[in-house]
Simulated assay, not measured.
Amino acid sequence: MSYIYDAVRTPRGKGKEGGALATMKPDELISSLVEALKKRNNINLNPEALILGVVGQVGAQGGNIALVSKFRSELPDSTAAFTINNLCVSGLTAISQAAGMIASGQAKSVLAGGVEMMSRVPFMEDKADFYTDTTFPLRSRYLLVALAADRLAENKGISREELDQLALKSQQLTQAAEGTKLLASRISVNGLDHEECLRVGTEESLAALEPAFAGAAKYYSEILGRDIDHRHTIAHAPGMSDGAGLALIGTKDAFNYEPRARIIASVEVGGDPTESLTASFAAMERVFELSGLSLDDMDRIEFMEAFAVSIALFMKNYDVSPEKVNVAGGHLAKGHPLGASGAILLSTLLDTLDVAKGRYGLVVSAGASGTGSAMIVERIG
């Protein structure tokens, strides 16, 4: 069995020059979180491993950024350090990998999470051949996630009005969470103590926004196969941001204090690349199969707002109380630091469970081309 002793996160800064975190390095964000874990729990850290999810593994995030972060954080030489890329679910995948190391007896404690500084390494900066490779079958060629979201909204009958309502709710919940215990594990970094990407609109201002991604459709027209009704605006897409999240995972007796939660089950799945973001649902359903639990058992849920269509389909197709879901706001309001997001969501889930004094919590994340991850935790205390 694997336990979460603590999980912390940074606020999310704007992922561009002039953003509140943009003067920092990704390894400095991680070292800030390592220091926070030490101080919050009054412990020394000698983990067997540091595992980080990062999508843009070039430039400031190249050179095995987990290893660089190990050195920056002054972790022991004996700590193994490796970086993984599972697209936008990377941060949660890293924590699942840590849980596996604990459960299999490979380690007594592991630090795991993710970091992404889009101010330093912009989206698709790795310039992978896959992004433009036409030798793949059409169904598995890379499709910009925003266009996949537009096509999915049209295919599944999600209206522009539904997207607007969910974006506004995310903004309002994010604003309402400030100054509350829902943010107990968010650590101020570089003077940033709030979600820098947040802009709270109105029904009228959101309705006035134009669809944002039609301009990219021409390049991907062969993959799309037809003209599509572009519905997502900038309010329906999570902003590019800087941020990090880190969890301390261990055995039952790894430290001399009570863990915050135990990991009941976690899964990684692949899905239909033509529907891109829907692997999240496959991951969620699989983790329920493994755990023997159901959506009804969950007291709090962090469901990644990869694009507004994702959360719209979740709320439309599953019998779930809105009062349980993303109660501190979501990605549409706060931003999406790619490889860090899954770890940030897990940290948020623990805070929301604490406030609710709930037992079970679910975190679900999705990425491009059919990647999905999910985890169920049980709160202790």
Rank of each mutant, 00 (worst) to 15 (best):
N85A: 02
N86C: 10
N86T: 14
C88I: 04
C88H: 08
V89R: 01
S90V: 01
S90Y: 04
G91V: 03
G91F: 04
L92S: 08
L92D: 06
T93F: 01
I95H: 04
I95G: 09
Q97D: 10
Q97A: 06
A99S: 11
G100A: 07
G100I: 00
M101G: 02
M101V: 00
M101K: 14
M101L: 14
S104L: 06
S104A: 15
A107E: 12
K108N: 15
S109E: 07
V110E: 11
L111E: 05
A112Y: 02
A112N: 06
G113R: 08
G113H: 05
G113T: 01
G113M: 01
G114E: 09
G114T: 08
E116W: 06
E116I: 00
E116Q: 12
M117R: 06
M117V: 01
M117Y: 06
S119H: 12
P122V: 02
P122I: 07
P122R: 10
P122Q: 05
M124N: 10
M124P: 08
E125L: 05
D126I: 09
D126V: 07
K127R: 15
D129V: 05
T132H: 14
T132F: 14
D133E: 02
T134S: 12
T134Q: 10
F136R: 14
F136I: 01
F136T: 04
P137H: 12
L138N: 14
L138S: 10
R139E: 15
S140Y: 07
S140V: 10
S140R: 14
R141I: 00
Y142C: 04
Y142D: 03
L143Q: 06
L144N: 14
V145H: 09
A146C: 11
A146V: 09
L147E: 05
L147P: 10
L147A: 09
A148I: 07
A148N: 07
A149P: 14
D150A: 04
A153F: 06
E154S: 12
N155C: 04
G157F: 03
S159G: 03
E161K: 12
E161L: 00
E161Y: 00
L166E: 03
A167M: 06
K169N: 13
S170Q: 08
S170D: 08
Q171F: 03
Q172R: 15
Q172W: 08
L173C: 01
L173R: 15
A176M: 11
A177S: 15
A177R: 11
G179R: 05
G179C: 02
G179N: 05
T180W: 05
K181H: 04
L183S: 03
L183P: 02
A184P: 00
R186M: 12
R186P: 00
R186A: 15
I187Q: 10
I187P: 10
S188I: 00
S188F: 02
V189K: 05
N190I: 02
N190E: 08
L192Q: 03
D193H: 15
D193L: 08
H194T: 09
H194A: 02
E195S: 03
L198P: 05
L198N: 07
G201Y: 14
G201H: 15
T202S: 15
E204N: 09
S205I: 09
L206E: 05
L206H: 07
A207N: 07
A207R: 13
L209E: 11
E210P: 11
P211Y: 01
P211W: 01
